[in-house]
């Protein structure tokens, strides 16, 4: 390169920079930006597609759920737990000393109406579905849910109490359309 540059009449300046060096860097930078821009559509095509995003809210009829019953609905391909809690369960969730929790949250922050607990039914550790939806399932030491994969225990507010999970079960965005209908998402 250097030899060609010199025979072409581009003698290096005192500090060793040449027009050729500039062109080389400019071309390289231009190419790098171009490759980056060209790569983005390839990368972004792997993100959720429009039709996947379109399925992002559901409406659930709650009228058939009895006190103490838990049901599972599917939202965005994930299970959502809807729990119509008993007085006891609500009381248990409310009396907890919040400061002692790994992910401190009062029960009030996690529900819209205390009777209805709505949770994404995915363990925050590595994504298993915790047990506890059926009355015959193990519900862990705090009467909420128990993840069989790596042994996380959740209480009746879906808060992490014991085991490897770092945070409480996620509360999805939802609103009550009327007393017996809820829109999730």
């Amino acid at each position: 390169m250097a030899t060609t540059g010199q025979t072409a009449g581009h003698a290096p300046h005192g500090d060793g920079e040449t027009r050729r060096d500039f062109l080389y860097l400019a071309t390289g930078a231009f190419g790098a930006v171009g490759v980056g821009l060209a790569a983005w559509p390839l990368i972004d095509s792997m993100n959720p597609a429009a039709d996947t995003l379109a399925l992002s809210s559901i409406v659930v009829d709650l009228s058939a759920i009895e006190t103490g019953q838990r049901i599972t609905v599917k939202w965005r391909g994930k299970p959502v737990f809807i729990d119509r809690r008993t007085e006891d369960q609500i009381k248990q969730a409310e009396v907890v000393n919040v400061a002692s929790l790994r992910d401190p949250q009062t029960d009030g922050e996690r529900v819209v109406k205390p009777e209805w607990l709505v949770l994404v039914g995915i363990c925050t550790h590595l994504g298993c579905v915790p047990l506890g939806q059926k009355s015959t399932d193990p519900r862990g030491d705090w009467g909420g849910w128990f993840c069989p994969c790596h042994g996380s225990h959740y209480d009746t507010s879906g808060r992490i109490r014991k085991g490897p999970a770092p945070t409480n079960l996620v509360v999805p965005v939802y609103e009550f359309l009327d007393d017996s209908t809820v829109k999730i998402g």
């Binding site: 993100n47 959720p48 597609a49 996947t52 391909g77």
Partner: peptide
């Protein structure tokens, strides 16, 4: 989310 191509392991994940 990017790995899955959705909000859970689903058809897009299987395809890729």
């Amino acid at each position: 989310t990017w790995l899955w191509g959705g909000f859970s392991v689903d058809n897009p994940t299987l395809n890729r």
